[in-house]
Design a protein around this nucleic acid. Structure first.
Lengths: 196, 196
DNA sequence: CGGCACTTTCAGTATTTTCTGAAACAACTG
DNA sequence: CAGTTGTTTCAGAAAATACTGAAAGTGCCG
């Protein structure tokens, strides 16, 4: 074990070294957990880890600091940060007398999940709904009414319709959660809490 | 329902061949869509496709029929079917005078999504919540009250707590949707519909 | 038993996804 | 401007994930 907490050089990777060991370890742990979660949520592990790091330290970090702390390449860091910024999960910041770009994470958990929900809806639900509608049209457009009498078509259409209807409902729920006011889910929680 | 026009010849893949072409194509399309969705939902494509096929044809199929229709290997079919059965999305069925096992898909969309939600919650939310609690304990157990005064620890704990609290809320929402009665989501939808 | 008929398992392979590293690019600074 | 510092891109490498096919397993039936 090192003699004491490391005191860093005047230059680069610094403040982290001054953190109490437990804190630093807890941060690392959180980063791993969140990274793992990203995996199962369709968010690349590294991207999730960067977000986790910025969230948990709640202090703007620059690319080099992030690279060092997570042991990742510059390319990876850059790509992930861009994506996080596009999503709106991190914002850029600057420090006087420093040309580097610093990144800071959104701190409101509601907002974080609203953003994630929005992106997932956009990438996962919307295209599927569109595809399902097209699929449905193939066997049921008014135009092709004739075909509806072929055996099995009707039942097929019913199944498709049930599915579509359900997903549309989920979709509109998500929509409300995502919506600017963001009242939707809060409300649902309150009501459900009482109702059950 | 006396389902149909189906000529059973002694060898395998039969009934499908008599389907109207549009229907068969619509089924294939649905299978692809659903398979794609599986991908983004963390469900292996093949597993999702098998489920889609069984759902949309709504008629028990055996392993060989599934293999033929989806062009997949026996191993893959077997593994996916086992998983689907474990989840409760498909059930086994038998036909008189046929030693093969037939599989049939759950047809109630609510139930389908309840099952998927349950599994995802089990695989994704629960472990993360547990891990987060452990992580939190590292910097906040009563035992280690002393450490709470080190710089930054308190703020760190606050952030962790916010996150945990939020996820627990989501978790309990999911719980209610999953619960046997399954009233939860239906209710939420109704209330939200009025409220917004 | 012994031969089928069918199902499951698993090591190896293929495919998809993500990361690296270096070069191109962009933007300040003196 | 020319040098420096910092950021982005992208082809290839690596890792993660899913699939195949054949062999092993299971259980029925005569």
């Amino acid at each position: 074990m090192p003699s004491t907490t490391k005191h860093r050089s005047r230059s680069g990777h610094v403040q982290a070294a001054r953190l109490p060991r437990v804190l630093r370890e807890a941060q690392n742990r959180f980063v791993s957990i969140w990274g793992g979660m990203g995996g199962s949520w369709g968010i690349p592990r590294t991207m999730a880890e960067i977000h986790a790091l910025l969230y948990i330290v709640n202090e703007p970090l620059n690319t080099d600091q992030i690279m060092a702390r997570l042991s990742i390449s510059r390319g990876s860091a850059s790509t992930s940060l861009k994506a996080l910024h596009d999503w709106g999960l991190v914002s850029r910041a600057h420090k006087r007398g420093d040309r580097k770009e610093y990144f800071r994470a959104e701190q409101d958990v509601w907002q974080i999940f609203r953003i994630i929900t929005r992106e997932r809806k956009r990438r996962e639900i919307d295209p599927i709904l569109m595809a399902l509608h097209e699929c449905r049209d193939a066997t049921g457009s008014r135009a092709g009414a004739a075909m509806r009498h072929k055996p099995g078509i009707e039942a097929h259409n019913d199944r498709l319709d049930q599915m579509i209807e359900f997903i549309e409902m989920i979709d509109s729920l998500a929509e409300q959660f995502v919506s600017p006011a963001g009242k939707g889910l809060r409300l649902a929680v309150g009501l459900l809490g009482k109702a059950v």
